[in-house]
Structures are given as C-alpha cells and as structure tokens.
Design a protein around this nucleic acid. Structure first.
Lengths: 186, 186
DNA sequence: TCGTTGAGTCAACGCCTGTTGAGCGAAATG
DNA sequence: CATTTCGCTCAACAGGCGTTGACTCAACGA
C-alpha cells in the first residue's frame, strides 16, 4: 500500500518536479493570471504552502516553470535562416509547454512580456545577421513575427484552418513567404 | 463652478460613454483579468456600483467596450486581398483601442478568444474566397496570421525593430511575403 | 407644487487570492 | 536509541475582487 519510502533528497526532487510540471501545464493552458497557486498545488497533489516554500512566490514559480533553452546560435545564409525559423514550428507543431506558457501570458503578464521581448529580439538579431540587403533588421523582425502569428493562431487560438492542414503543407506554403523577406530585393 | 445642469438623458449618455471609453483603454492596456471594475470606475470618475448598474457584470462591460465594426466585405482578386490585409495595419499603425483590447485579451480571456477566433475566421474565409489554386483556405489563414503576428509584435509587444521602421517600409517589406502566399503556385 | 423617477453614491457582503507561521511525523544522524 | 533535520500539512491572515441593496437628491411630469 505505502510507497517504498524513497530517500529524502530523491523525494524532494520528485515533488519539486511534479509542481513544476503542473505549473507549466496550467500556465500554458490558462495563462499567468488565471492560474492559481492552489490549482497548481492540487494538480501536483501537494499543499499550496509547499509551492510557496519551494518557489517563494507566484512570479518566481512562473519564471522557473517557463525557463527554456533558447535555440542554438547559428548564422549562415538567408536559406538557413528560413529553415531555422520554420523549424521553430516544432516537430508536428507540438511546442514544449514552457514555450506555450510564455506565449499565452506574454500579452497580459508584464514579466512574461519582458522575457518574450528579449527572446524575440535575440531571434530577430540572429536572423537579421544572416540577411543582406536593405532593411535587414526590419525584414528579420517581420520574419520572426510571421512565425509568432502562425504559432499563436495554431497553438493558442486553435484556428480550424491551421489545425486541419497537414504540417508539411503548412511549412511548404509558408516557405515562399519567408523567402520573399529573406532574399535581398530582386 | 457647477455645470450647466444637463438634461437627464444627455447626462446619462455621456456618463455611459465615459465609462465605456475608460474601460476600452484599460482593457487595451492591461487585458481583461488585470483590469478591475474599480479602476474603470475611477478612470471614468464614477462609483464602481454605477458601472455594474449600467453593464450588469464585468464580462458584459468587456463585450460592449470591444464591440467594433468588422472590415467591409469585399472579395476580388489576390492583389486586392493583399492590399486589404495590409490596410488592416491601420493608418500609421494606430489601431482603434477596441481592437487592441481584443488582441490583448484573446490569449487569456476565454470569451475574447472565442470572439477573436470568430473575427479571424471570417477574415480568413473572406481572403480565401479571393484566392485560387491549391490550399486556398490554408494560405488565407497564413496570410491572416502574418498580419496578426506583425500587429502583436508592433502594438502589444512593442518590438523596437518594428517601432523604429517607417510605416511605409514595413508595408513595402511585407507585401512580397503576402503576395507569395496569394499568388497561385508559380 | 408635489409626488415620481432615475442617475449616482455609500457601505457592505462573500469569495477567492497570494502568502505566512506553527506544527507533525518520518527520515537522517550520532 | 535519542536527537536533529526537514519535507510536508494545517489553519489562518490580510487584501482585493466582483457584486448587491439601501439610500440621496436633483430633474421631471401632472
């Protein structure tokens, strides 16, 4: 009936991970404001006070839960930039919950907005560095925003027109649009 | 010192409009959850109870505040669809507060999400009808999402790379990308 | 002029939130 | 075995929220 009584350190690690996983999922689903500490605690099968003890406050819990490794730096030509961006759509359009949580909250939670701005700016800079021609930063920003828009529409708003299309069709349709921005004006 | 004592009907209309304007601005700035009835009332220089008396509850206040006329129906060729979409960026990129309020809340407030989905789907359908070739609905959806992404990045996240660029450059850079989606595969 | 209407205020309600401090009981330590 | 450590729970707090009902008083209609 009872568990095999794990060592303390291991037990703590598992609990912390359970809380973090629950928090990530809830933040991804409802956003920062509508996710309560109590709901996270319940999902992790833990007392709300324990969540506070582990993470101090709700903002820090969010920050820990959405911490995600940025894409590897790589700057080559415009072609590679396009493919790199298309790659951010994720395998079969399934983004990690941490990213979804960030996206979901970036318009309403100020700290999420700041983090998102930073991450997006880094990507813009990276893409921009691999472009030549006029207005490279602007074009890089537009390319990044295109993927933001598509991701939001697909993952968060769940628009039928995007969900019904096969992933490959979507990528194939999007590629020429990105190329049009990546290539120096013809 | 005192006002010229307006007639009741007129007075009511003005107060209602003051509340609605304040609500729109706050919803646009902070989103649904972080905007309180009390803050709206304070901005409109009115008692919170009056807001309730006029609009019943917070959800209805939001619904009234963001009610906005959809773009005029018009479907012609792919060229016109592109220009129509580019037009939604607004004169000098200044969108009406009602639209900003919708956009700001669409990822976290379920009713805003539903309304946004509906409005976007209508636009997708409209754009799609003016496209020919394969995957017209998908391509129309992508075109719409492109504008969503650019608008979010510019108006809500306020990315420097987009804010610094002249409006005309932005439109000009975006046009070929949209054309690539609008034109039947070459 | 006098009763009625209705715009607007006041004070409070119940609820839910993030957050805290005291305490329990099992694992670790000697 | 005795003691300390610490993962975890319990019960509660203060504050802010949406919302309500009773009330005030100036504009209105007869």
């Amino acid at each position: 009936m009872t568990e095999p009584a794990l060592p303390r350190a291991e037990r703590r690690r598992r609990t912390e991970r359970r809380i973090l996983d629950a928090a990530r999922d809830l933040f991804a689903e409802r956003g920062f404001e509508r996710t309560t500490i109590r709901a996270v605690a319940a999902a992790a099968e833990v007392d709300p006070a324990l969540v506070m003890q582990y993470f101090g406050n709700k903002r820090r819990l969010f920050a820990e839960a959405v911490r995600v490794a940025g894409p590897p730096d790589s700057a080559a030509g415009p072609e590679e930039a396009v493919e790199q961006l298309l790659g951010t759509l994720g395998v079969k359009m399934r983004l990690p919950p941490a990213s979804l949580a960030m996206l979901r909250s970036m318009l309403t939670h100020p700290e999420a907005a700041a983090t998102a701005r930073e991450a997006l700016s880094r990507q813009v800079g990276q893409v921009g560095a691999s472009l030549s021609g006029e207005n490279a930063p602007l074009r890089a920003a537009l390319m990044t925003m295109i993927l933001l828009g598509v991701t939001v529409g697909h993952q968060l708003l769940e628009l039928d027109e995007l969900r019904e299309a096969p992933h490959d069709d979507l990528v194939a349709a999007l590629r020429p649009a990105l190329r049009a921005l990546a290539e120096p004006a013809l």
